[in-house]
Design a protein around this nucleic acid. Structure first.
Lengths: 197, 197
DNA sequence: GGAGCCATGTAAGTAGTTACATGATTGA
DNA sequence: TCAATCATGTAACTACTTACATGGCTCC
C-alpha cells in the first residue's frame, strides 16, 4: 500500500510533551533544566512537564534529528543546550497547523463540591475557599509576568511572538478572574441558603 | 508498628474515578451505563469516566463493601443497579473532607498558540476560533441543564443538593463566558497587529 | 563546609483512553 | 428486520508522575 517517497505530510509520532519541548526550543536554545523552568513560568498552569518526561523526550527529539546540541554550548559540555534543526522547525510548523487535542480537565475539587452537601455547608465553604486561594495565586503569578520584548524569550522573534505571549497571559488572567468572581457568587449563595434553614 | 483496631481515619485506596463513581451512586442507585451518562451530563467537561475505568472500579467498590446491588434491580438481573452501603456513605463522607487534588489541565491548543507566530496569523486565528466554538458548545450544554428539584437526581436530597448542582453549573457558565470574552479580545488584538504590519 | 540551586537522568508505578467484543431490547 | 440505544466488559497501550540517585557549582 506504500506510495513510495510521498510521506511528506505524515507527522512523526511524539508525545504531546515532546512537541511542547520542541516548541520551547524554537524560541531560544536551552538545556533541559531551562526548558522545565520556561514551561513552568509561562504555561505551567495548563501544561506541566516533569523531568521524567523531559529528558527522555529530548533524547527522542535528537534521535529524530529535530534538535541538536547548540553551538552556544561553550561550557565544558556538562549541560547541553539544545537548538532546533531545520527539520525540527519544519515539523513543528506542521504540528502547529493540525487541530489541537481537545482540552482536558481533571478537577477533583469541583467533583467534591457536587456531592459536598452530604458533608454539610462547612465542607462546601472550604472547597470554595480553596479554589479562591488557588485562583488568586494563579492570577498574581500571571500578573507578575510582563512580556519583555528584549528578553531572551522574545528577542529575534517577530512582533507576533510578543502578541502570542500576551494572549496566553490574558487568557490566564481572564479565567482566574472568572474563577474568583464565581467564588464570591458561590459564597453568597451558600450564605443565603444557610439563613433559610 | 500496628496499633490494632485504630485505623478509622485511613481511607481505602481508590482511584479518583472510583470516588467519583461512589459519589454519583450516593445521589441515587444506577447501573454502570447510567453512571456514565450522569457523569457526562453534569461534570463531563471537567471530569471524564470511560468504561474502561468504570466497570473495573464498580467491581472494586463492591469488593470493598461500599456498594451493593440495589433492591430496585427488578429486571431479570442482566443490568445491575448499584446503591451505597452504609459503609460506602461513611467513607465517601470522609473523602469529601480531605483536600482535593490540585486541578489538572492539559490544554494543547493554548500551547500551540504560544508558538503559533511561527505559523503565521492565520494559524493563530484558527486556534482562537476553535476555542470559541468549543466554549460556546460548553456554555449551551450547561445552560440547557436546568436543575430539576423533583428529578431523580435531586429528589430525597436536602436543599443543599440543589445548591451544589447550581454552583457547578454556574462555574461552567462563568468559565465558558470568560473564554468567549477572551476570544473576542484576542481576535481584536490579532486584527490590530495585522494592520500595523 | 554546608545550604541551596543547577543539571541529568532512571525505574516503578498510576491513571487513564482506545479499540475491541458481545449481546439484549426497543421502536420504526 | 434493521438501526439505534442499552448494557457490560477486557486487553493493549499511552502519557504522565513520583521517588530515587547522583554530582557539580556557588555563595555565605
Amino acid at each position: 500500500v506504500a506510495i513510495s517517497g510521498r510521506y511528506n505530510d505524515e507527522l512523526p509520532k511524539l508525545t504531546p510533551t515532546g512537541w511542547t519541548v520542541l516548541g520551547f526550543l524554537s524560541i531560544c536554545p536551552r538545556n533541559g533544566y531551562q526548558v522545565h523552568q520556561a514551561v513552568q513560568r509561562s504555561v505551567g498552569h495548563f501544561w506541566g512537564v516533569s523531568y521524567g518526561q523531559l529528558y527522555p523526550q529530548l533524547k527522542v527529539l535528537q534521535e529524530q534529528g529535530f534538535i541538536t546540541p547548540s553551538d552556544a554550548t561553550t561550557d565544558g559540555g556538562r549541560q547541553t543546550s539544545w537548538q532546533l534543526t531545520e527539520r525540527g522547525a519544519e515539523v513543528l510548523d506542521r504540528w502547529l497547523r493540525i487541530e489541537p487535542a481537545p482540552p482536558q480537565r481533571r478537577d477533583e475539587g469541583m467533583v467534591k463540591l457536587m456531592f459536598a452537601d452530604h458533608a454539610g455547608p462547612d465542607a462546601m465553604l472550604s472547597l470554595i475557599q480553596q479554589r479562591r486561594t488557588e485562583a488568586g495565586r494563579r492570577r498574581d503569578l500571571a500578573e507578575a509576568v510582563i512580556p519583555d520584548p528584549h528578553g531572551p524569550d522574545q528577542a529575534s522573534r517577530g512582533p507576533n511572538a510578543v502578541l502570542a505571549t500576551s494572549l496566553v497571559r490574558a487568557h490566564t488572567l481572564a479565567l482566574a478572574n472568572a474563577e474568583l468572581a464565581w467564588c464570591d457568587q458561590a459564597e453568597t449563595m451558600l450564605a443565603e441558603q444557610g439563613q433559610m434553614s
